[in-house]
Amino acid sequence: MAAIAAEQAHSHDHHGPLHHQFEDLDQQNEAYLVGMWAFLVQEVMFFGALFLTYTLMRWQYPMDWYFAHNELDWKLAGFNTFNLLLSSFFAAMGVRSAQLKDRKGVLLWLGGVLLCCLVFLGIKYVEYALKWEHHLVPGPSFFYQGEANPGVAQMFFGLYFAMTGLHGIHVAVGLIVFGILWLMWYFRKTIVTEDYMPTEMCGLYWHFVDLVWIFLYPLFYLIPHP
């Protein structure tokens, strides 16, 4: 994703936002949308392989999965979910005001998104630090004393760190991308103020990241007793 955003950021503009290889703006916007959605399809398959492994391991070891998940604090993550939903709402509003070329609105809403991003990463850091103290990070320091079988518990936390970690990296990339976007709006760069497409694409990426967390949250934090 950073590639497309970076590509937006420093593409010098000939005559307004229309790039030389396109006939008109509609064709350009539609092409960018299709390209962005092709990228999001690839991201779906990227997370999909992890979701599949998760489902398989949970189907094979239901009880151990339930015991291992008791170590996770679902209230904190619940607040994190609300935080991401809020940031998704802010992003949608930001894209809307970008379409209406309302610079003030964009700066406000995208500022909200950046804030929620930071809050999310902060909570993530707190959660991971908590796990580190309880020796729940897979590897030599892993030392699980709950009721689950320690091997399966190590797999559970391995998958937990793999999936939420990968999601966290996507949130961090989102933070950088929205930061660049915010600065470009702030300095009235024509590439973003004239054409709403770069902002909409960042919004699409952000909604996808929120989408992944919508599935991650119930799967990791709200496992019913089998």
Binding site: E30, L33, V34, W37, A38, L40, V41, Q42, V44, M45, G48, F51, S88, F89, A91, A92, E200, G203, L204, H207, F208
Partner: peptide
């Protein structure tokens, strides 16, 4: 709604749904 797929062209809808079907 947020990703405005309901209002976008059929092609974007195809790719939006296709990704999850392939999953």
């Amino acid at each position: 709604i947020f990703m405005a797929v309901r209002r976008s062209s059929g092609l974007v809808k195809l790719y939006a749904i296709g990704g999850f079907v392939w999953f």
